[in-house]
Nucleic acid binder design. Structure first.
Length: 573
RNA sequence: UGGGGCGUAGCCAAGCGGUAAGGCAGCGGAUUUUGAUUCCGCGAUGCGGAGGUUCGAAUCCUCCCGCCCCAGCCA
């Protein structure tokens, strides 16, 4: 379970923290209640994992790592109507990618169907479960409301023999879907609605991805989850807050059944992120209705999407560490995630130059046909990353944003008459502007100072800005995709009307970008920083002649902040 | 108006009767061939509110207020 690339200096402090769950585990170990901590991450294979799951994965696997225990990966595959093998595969891939290893401990709730069935019969024999013939509507009507107790089912008093017979015939497939259910006999008047005779088994004539057509009845989550934990000797069954009032039911099964261990359930607050929806239902619709290109669309908060966007697993772990674990509902600013991404990528990404929106520059006093190879550092804070050569010539491209004809007071970049440094190259001064027929700036005429080669002036004069550039003839064309928040509202509704909150600018495609030759290797999957712009990675849509880069996250931009105080983050750059 | 939870700075979050950690964001400043990074400094006489217990309360008690979850044969 060890990870090689654990965050070092600068990342969140890696003491195991003191959240309430770690405190409980620590105490259980100290008092000897348990010898070893055993947790599990229990996804239902009905969708892809997202960053909210990452919180749970890091918690469960992290606990096991920190306290020398183990963590299982168990699929809660009790509802064949929604589940698929594709999701089982994707989930395993994503957990591994996040940096965790379940070793031999891969399980499926469906592995336990036979045992669960046997326990259901035990409950019947003990007079604690019965077959109910009521329709779904009748059951609902008799469940009562939040303030009124429910009414007992007319079938609640059936004999053990009759219940056993009926339940066996349910298993045998003698009844159609919905005809009967097996219910626990607990308390129809309980203030906790989960205790009003919850459904244990329902009839579902549906093939299961793993058990095929062997079963015609499937256990409910409540009946499967705790017992599965017990079978695996899970010590701490960690789930989210909405299961808090299932805990009495969880404990009821553990008490009344002859289970091999007694797990305890603890609940923590799930992750909420601004400008993000983490509802599997909505994410599934985004994919199915084509609002995004797939589960791995770089705009998606799925692990597959984040990975494709270029977010390192380490950044997600760093983020999760920073947000902590508690019971208070909270809404984390998406900027926190951006911070963790930059934090990791700043250390890791090699620097390169790329011009996203090119503006041609002709250096009038630079000889035609001449090419120089200038040396540039691959990482400003890490000499061991080495250097590369960048070709310089008479015709260049610079970023359109780096030139303004009528610059405001605090604009230090290029403007008519001003001098700037071309990074790792020369000082240049703008001497003229060439326009097209529409009057738009089409080209800049500049003069360079040959004495400033490499970027330093022997006379000690300073420039106020350094801008990036590429040689027109030597640079390569590329497509650059700017990934912006999928939702424009800070707190999207997440309801059926989710589409109204979608950010129309979530994806900006820049078709005319130019990248320096060092970026030519199309097999290089390493993250890079396009200097002064952000962190990027190659998208799988790349073709050898047509590289495509995703902007993982932009660099902090205090100048932009200065210009547009309180801008709209959904708008992007 | 039933049951279960939760309220500490703009956002996360420590704190467990001894006098409010840390991070993100923000704001200053230093360094800088990325307006990046890095570094330094700044924020609660106050912990949802009101009472009470105590030498001492964010921590204990009482009442009140606010927010979240639960009425699937989903998980």
């Amino acid at each position: 379970m060890a990870r090689e690339d654990t965050a070092s200096g600068g990342t969140a402090q890696d003491d195991s923290g003191h959240d309430f769950i770690r405190d409980i585990v620590r105490a259980d170990l100290e008092t000897g209640r348990i010898k070893q901590v055993i947790t599990r991450f229990p996804p239902e294979p009905n969708g892809y994992l997202h960053i909210g799951h990452a919180k749970s994965i890091c918690l469960n696997f992290g606990l096991a790592e920190e306290f020398g225990g183990r963590c299982h990966l168990r699929f809660d595959d009790t509802n064949p109507a929604k589940e698929a093998q594709e999701y089982v595969d994707a989930i395993q891939r994503d957990v591994r990618w996040l940096g965790f290893d379940w070793g031999e401990h891969l399980y499926f709730a469906s592995d336990y169907f036979e045992q669960l069935y046997a326990w259901a019969e035990d409950l019947i024999r003990a007079g604690l479960a019965y077959v109910d013939d009521q329709s779904q509507e009748e059951i609902r009507a008799n469940r009562g409301t939040l303030t009124e107790p429910g009414r007992d089912s007319p079938y609640r008093g059936r004999s053990v023999a009759e219940n056993l017979d009926l339940f066996r015939r349910m298993r045998a497939g003698e009844f159609p879907n919905g005809a009967r259910v097996l219910r626990a006999k607990i308390d129809m008047a309980s203030g906790n609605i989960n205790l009003r005779d919850p459904v244990l088994y329902r009839i579902l004539h549906l093939p299961h991805p793993r058990t095929g057509t062997a079963w015609k009845i499937y256990p409910s989550y409540d009946f499967a989850h705790g017992q599965s934990d017990a079978i695996e000797h899970v010590t701490h069954s960690i789930c989210t807050l909405e299961f808090e009032d299932h805990r009495p039911l969880y404990d009821w099964f553990i008490e009344h059944l002859d289970v091999p261990s007694r797990p305890r359930q603890y609940e923590f607050a799930r992750l909420n992120l601004t400008h993000t929806v983490l509802s599997k239902r909505v994410l599934t619709r985004l994919v199915q209705e084509g609002h995004v290109t797939g589960w791995d669309d770089p705009r998606m908060p799925t692990l597959a999407g984040l990975r494709r966007r270029g977010v390192p697993a380490e950044a997600i772990r760093d983020f999760v560490k920073r947000i902590g674990v508690a019971k208070a509902n909270s809404l984390v600013d998406i900027g926190m995630l951006d911070f963790s991404i930059r934090n990791v990528l700043n250390r890791r990404a090699l620097r390169r130059m790329a011009v996203l929106r090119p503006l041609k520059v002709v250096i009038e006093n630079y000889p035609e046909g001449k090419v120089e190879e200038l040396e540039a550092a691959n990482h400003p804070d890490d000499a061991s990353a080495g250097v590369r050569k960048i070709p310089f010539s008479r015709e260049l491209y610079i970023e359109r944003d780096d030139f303004m004809e009528q610059p405001p007071k605090k604009f230090f970049r290029l403007s008519p008459g001003s001098e700037v440094r071309l990074r790792y190259a020369y000082f240049i001064r703008c001497t003229g502007v060439v326009r097209n027929s529409a009057g738009e700036v089409e080209e800049l005429r500049c003069r360079y100072d040959p004495a400033t080669r490499g970027g330093n002036a022997p006379d000690g004069r300073k420039v106020r800005a350094t801008i990036h550039w590429v040689s027109a003839a030597h640079s390569l064309p590329a497509e650059v995709r700017l990934i912006n928040p999928l939702f424009r509202t800070p707190v999207p509704s997440g309801g059926d009307d989710f589409a109204a909150d979608l950010n129309p600018h979530s994806l900006e495609v820049l078709g005319g970008a130019r990248i320096e030759p060092a970026l030519a290797d199309s097999s290089d999957a390493a993250p890079v920083q396009f200097e002064r712009q952000g962190y990027f990675c190659r998208d799988p849509d790349s073709r050898p002649d047509r590289p495509v880069f995703n902007r993982t996250v932009g660099l902090r931009d205090s100048f932009a902040k200065e210009l547009a105080k309180g801008g709209d983050p959904a708008q992007g750059a």
